Amino acid sequence: MKGVTTAPRPLAAEDDTAAFDCGREALNQWLRRHAWRNQELGVSRTSVVCDPATGDLIGFVSLSAAQIERAWLPKAQQRNRPDPMPAILLGQLAVDLRWQGRGVARSLVFYALTTAVRLSREVGCFCVLTHPLDDELRALYTRFGFEDLPFDPARSMAVRIGDLLHNGFDGAG
């Protein structure tokens, strides 16, 4: 994201979330109503990227601790695993309409996965979990190695930390 946006940083109380519009009212409202409160409560952490010229928010991603039921995994991955399995949730991801199509979402996913790998060195974590809202997001996550959890009724997707490490996500950023 260098040169196009600022580096990801934690959401701040003074950030102008009212001007952000990703085209999905549910995500706009989550940013305005819940992101900061969740941050204060330690429920999730939202990282933002901004327009370097104006300081406007142009994208965000939220991460939190999560778990998945072992039964949701492919049968081959269920054997001798704890239940539930520890995970990091890539919960919310959005890019302002004016910045869509410029690779910002891809950069935010890369940042989230790199962060997850780094955290997994300190706290046990099997995978990164996400709940894509549509097929466009599913396609984005698939490019990063996410796979459908075949037995999850919510149609979640996950990528194993071990696979991220194998594919060069070293957690260094």
Rank of each mutant, 00 (worst) to 15 (best):
119 L>V: 06
91 G>R: 04
7 A>L: 12
85 M>A: 04
112 A>G: 03
32 R>M: 09
21 D>F: 07
85 M>E: 10
5 T>W: 08
64 S>Q: 09
29 Q>H: 13
79 R>D: 08
110 F>K: 15
90 L>G: 05
101 G>I: 06
149 L>C: 02
95 V>D: 04
97 L>T: 14
69 E>C: 11
98 R>A: 15
44 S>E: 05
135 D>G: 03
97 L>V: 12
44 S>I: 09
61 V>L: 02
6 T>R: 00
25 E>A: 12
42 G>F: 03
69 E>I: 07
48 V>D: 00
72 W>Y: 12
12 A>D: 10
34 H>T: 11
105 A>E: 10
16 D>N: 15
69 E>W: 02
5 T>Q: 06
51 D>F: 07
53 A>Q: 15
125 C>Y: 04
40 E>A: 08
52 P>Y: 11
55 G>D: 08
153 P>V: 06
160 R>S: 07
156 S>G: 14
20 F>K: 04
71 A>M: 05
124 G>S: 14
161 I>W: 04
163 D>Q: 14
14 E>P: 00
85 M>Q: 13
73 L>E: 10
162 G>N: 09
79 R>C: 05
55 G>M: 10
15 D>F: 02
158 A>P: 04
47 S>C: 08
159 V>P: 01
169 F>L: 05
86 P>G: 10
113 L>V: 02
86 P>Y: 09
140 L>C: 08
40 E>P: 00
171 G>H: 02
166 H>D: 15
161 I>K: 08
112 A>P: 10
18 A>Y: 11
111 Y>S: 07
164 L>V: 05
81 R>V: 09
